[in-house]
Structures are given as structure tokens and as C-alpha cells.
């Protein structure tokens, strides 16, 4: 039983961060139809920026956010404006290939600067534990859980009740009509992409304490994110967070109750089954 609860806690905590990772991709897909295969490498970039700031200025990853979030947001905006915007209207696959090229550039740029050895970034809360009865959880995971849900709720409110949020939803529903109503579609798409990358900077810092990082990890994060977004029905907020929890839980239970290999297969297996039998994603309505 203790094992069961432990896995439950672990899965929920990690899963919430997976959900946050996926929200950024879901937003971008909803607004501009771009599936960003360099998503995971932007997470890497966020993590390595934290590492760099720690080595240079001894900043804690959580403090580094003051620098990494604005920086990554600007990078995201520039990438969309100069690289992805010119591809609008071309084949979906070409855009995907472009983001794969971007993934190569990011991954190897990081490799050039930081080298290929796995690295860790220490944080003050790294080794702190929270003990609730039989369940032991690590404080960074709790922080990640709380911040992820706070961010998700914040984004939801932003989409619901700010002008920028309304313009995002307008472009998502019908870009042509939005343009006719005076919404600058390119601008909204660029800002959304920038926002999505900015969110990744936060998610990167949340995942960082206690996690060894290396430049080649990007693809794995991209795949997890894609799976979570697809589980959530691509653009559904609640569905995406739920998808994150499902993947987090299946990873946690898979590694505890099944052999290594089977445990690693479980999230993919669950994903394939859900995609086959509920292709519209987990939730019923597609409104957000």
C-alpha cells in the first residue's frame, strides 16, 4: 500500500509538470497549427541556461527564472517571426522538418557550449524531503506541482478574460474571421509562440533540481510532450493537464510494478490505446 501511495504521489507530481510542458505546445498548435519538434530542445535550453547562470553567478534555478523567462520568450518570438512565419501556408511536414532542423541547431549549440557530460544544477531545496505518513516526496516535486497548476489556472484565466486571451481564442477558432475583425493574426501567433517558449523556461527550472541533464535529452521530452498534447485532444486545457497526469502516473506505476522494459512501454501502450479508442482526446467537450 505504501508503495502504491508513493507511486501515486510521484506520478501526480511529475505528471503535473508534463502537463505544463504540453500546455505551451497545445497553445501554439491551436493558434498556428505548428507542431514544434524542437519543443524538448527548448526545455534543454532552459535547463542549460539555469546551469550556466549557476556556474557563472551561483544563482539558484528558481532565481534564474528572472533572467531565463524573458530571454526564452524573446528567443521564441524571434524564432517564430523569422523562421516559422514565412512557412505559413506550406506543407505541414515542411514546417515539422524546419523545427527538426532547429532541434539539431539547439541541441548541438548546447553541446558546443556545455559539452556532452551529464550535469546537475544544485538548488537549495534539492535534497529536502516532505514526509506524509508512509509517503516521502521531494520538495522540488511539490513546488513543481503547485507552480504547474497555478500556471495552468493563470493561463486559463488569461485566455478567458483578457483581450490578448480573446484574440488567441479568436485565431484558434477561425483565423480568417479573426483577421477580418481586425486581429493581427501573425502578431498573435508570434506572441503565443513566445509565450509557449516562456512557459518552457519555467517548466525547465521546475524539472531541474535533482535531474541530471545532457544535450541529447531533447527528443525524449518532445515525445512525452507530443503524447500528452495528443491525449488532451491537442488544444483542450483540462485534457492536456489530465494527459500529463496519466503519463506521469503510468510511468511511476510502470517502473514500480512491472519490469524495467514493460514499465517503460506502459505510457506508450496507454497512449496508443487511448488514441485508437478516443481519438478526440480525453475530455468530451472541445471548448476551453
Amino acid at each position: 500500500m505504501a508503495e502504491f501511495l508513493q507511486a501515486l504521489a510521484q506520478g501526480l507530481l511529475i505528471g503535473s509538470t508534463y502537463g505544463l510542458l504540453a500546455l505551451g505546445m497545445g497553445l501554439v498548435y491551436g493558434v498556428s497549427g505548428v507542431v514544434n519538434f524542437s519543443h524538448g530542445d527548448f526545455i534543454s535550453l532552459g535547463m542549460f541556461l539555469c546551469l550556466g547562470l549557476y556556474s557563472a553567478l551561483a544563482l539558484d534555478p528558481y532565481v534564474s527564472l528572472i533572467i531565463t523567462v524573458p530571454l526564452m520568450t524573446v528567443i521564441g518570438g524571434l524564432v517564430y517571426w523569422y523562421l516559422l512565419r514565412p512557412m505559413v501556408g506550406h506543407q505541414f511536414l515542411m514546417v515539422v522538418q524546419l523545427t527538426l532542423g532547429l532541434s539539431l541547431v539547439l541541441q548541438n549549440g548546447i553541446l558546443m557550449v556545455f559539452g556532452g557530460q551529464p550535469a546537475r544544477t544544485p538548488s537549495v531545496v534539492e535534497s529536502k524531503l516532505l514526509i506524509l505518513g508512509d509517503v516521502v516526496v521531494r520538495v522540488p516535486h511539490v513546488i513543481a506541482f503547485v507552480v504547474s497548476f497555478a500556471m495552468a489556472i493563470g493561463l486559463y484565466i488569461m485566455l478567458r478574460s483578457t483581450d490578448f486571451g480573446r484574440s488567441i481564442r479568436a485565431v484558434h477558432q477561425n483565423a480568417h474571421a479573426a483577421a477580418l475583425m481586425g486581429v493581427d493574426v501573425s502578431r498573435v501567433q508570434t506572441l503565443t509562440f513566445a509565450l509557449g517558449i516562456g512557459i518552457l523556461a519555467i517548466a525547465a527550472a521546475l524539472l531541474l533540481p535533482g535531474t541530471p541533464i545532457q544535450p541529447a535529452q531533447g527528443l525524449r521530452y518532445t515525445v512525452i510532450t507530443l503524447i500528452v498534447v495528443a491525449l488532451g485532444g491537442m488544444t483542450n486545457f483540462v485534457g492536456i493537464m489530465l494527459g500529463g497526469l496519466i503519463i506521469g502516473l503510468s510511468e511511476a506505476y510502470g517502473t514500480i510494478y512491472l519490469s524495467d522494459t514493460l514499465g517503460m512501454l506502459l505510457p506508450y501502450g496507454i497512449f496508443v490505446l487511448i488514441m485508437l479508442f478516443r481519438p478526440q482526446g480525453l475530455t468530451w467537450s472541445s471548448s476551453r
Binding site: Q97, L100, S103, L104, V105, N108, I110, L111, M112
Partner: peptide, 20 residues
């Protein structure tokens, strides 16, 4: 390490942008 893939990635992006 990484330099040749970096340049390769830049070329791929450039080619795609020029010939979508």
C-alpha cells in the same frame, strides 16, 4: 563536438526556408 551538426542544422533550415 556538436559543431558539424550545428552547421548541418543551419543548412537544413536555410534550404527549407528557400525551397519550401
Amino acid at each position: 563536438p556538436g559543431l558539424h551538426y550545428f552547421i548541418y542544422g543551419v543548412v537544413v533550415i536555410a534550404v527549407i526556408l528557400m525551397t519550401p
